[in-house]
């Protein structure tokens, strides 16, 4: 089977791309797929610490591109999940060390070896963004339900369309059901209406994300976590399954309405 390349991007920084990349990779690997995640944020390496694999780095993506090692040597195998690997970013170089065609070449080399390649993008619309979308089969845009993140997501969605890499799908991260219910946070429906693209995931704002990140244990590894489940649901939807959007708030019903919206808009 030839791998699917899934790129996780955003316009605004800090909205949760790296968190999402780590958790989707974990969720797909838990479902038995062979997954390689690539940290595309050259110079600001982070996916290694979020996955808890920072102590085992020998080679990185730039070493692969510059032929200092083979791809296999740069693939760090996860301790917890047999079929999960990370190719870390270089920390001492910048985005210009890699070109879009380098990324395409690296992914093509991996395509016959694995099931999914998950690429974590840097923030912004510069070279790093173009590098990470170049090999993508599917682009997931992460945003938060607030004005600047939504505005920047719109810009990225437009750029993805212009590059003929669309349609991108949307992940709304850090939804606070209390604020939403009070009318002080854009609802997932509002965001979907504004951006007019298909929704693939809604993730609650959850302090356990911070705690699990402190430990290098992505929350999708915790079988009891609802937030972990939200990431697992995205992984199922990537696999082509239709999973209803879960109820994040015992009393609230806005997510049930989003589920309806998704089914209408979905294929």
């Amino acid at each position: 089977m030839a791998a699917s390349v899934v790129t996780i991007t955003s316009g605004k920084g800090g909205v949760g791309k790296t968190t999402t990349s780590a958790n989707l990779a974990v969720a797909l690997a838990e479902d038995g797929f062979k997954v390689v995640c690539i940290d595309g944020d050259i110079g600001l390496r982070n996916l290694d610490v979020v996955l808890g694999l920072e102590n085992r780095i020998v080679y990185d993506l730039v070493d692969v591109v510059e032929n200092r090692c083979r791809i296999r040597q740069a693939m760090i195998r996860d301790k917890r999940l047999e079929e999960l690997y990370l190719i870390p970013a270089a920390q001492t170089r910048d985005k210009s060390a890699i070109s879009p065609s380098d990324m395409v070449r690296v992914c093509d080399e991996l395509r016959n070896e694995v099931d999914y390649i998950i690429i974590d993008s840097p923030a912004g619309i510069e070279r790093g963004f173009r590098n990470t979308i170049a090999p993508a089969d599917l682009i997931l845009v992460v945003t938060n339900p607030e004005v600047s993140a939504v505005r920047d997501a719109d810009r990225i969605i437009g750029l993805v369309e212009a590059e003929e890499k669309g349609p991108a799908k949307l992940i709304i991260n850090r939804v606070n059901p209390g604020l939403t219910k009070r009318g002080d946070m854009l609802t997932p429906e509002d965001v979907v209406e504004l951006l007019a693209i298909e929704l693939i995931g809604v993730i609650p704002d959850d302090e356990n994300v911070v705690i699990s990140t402190n430990r290098g244990q992505p929350i999708a590894l915790d079988p009891k976590s609802k937030t972990g489940q939200a990431f697992k649901n995205i992984s199922k939807r990537i696999q082509g399954q239709s999973v209803p959007f879960m109820q994040l708030d015992e009393k609230g019903d806005f997510l049930a309405k989003v589920a309806g919206l998704f089914r209408q808009g979905g294929d």
Binding site: R151, T180, R182, D184
Partner: peptide
Amino acid sequence: RQSADEAKERLKLVLIHDR
């Protein structure tokens, strides 16, 4: 008005002009 409604209205206009 609830602040989320204001955010939505403002974003609608901003996105039109951005696009």
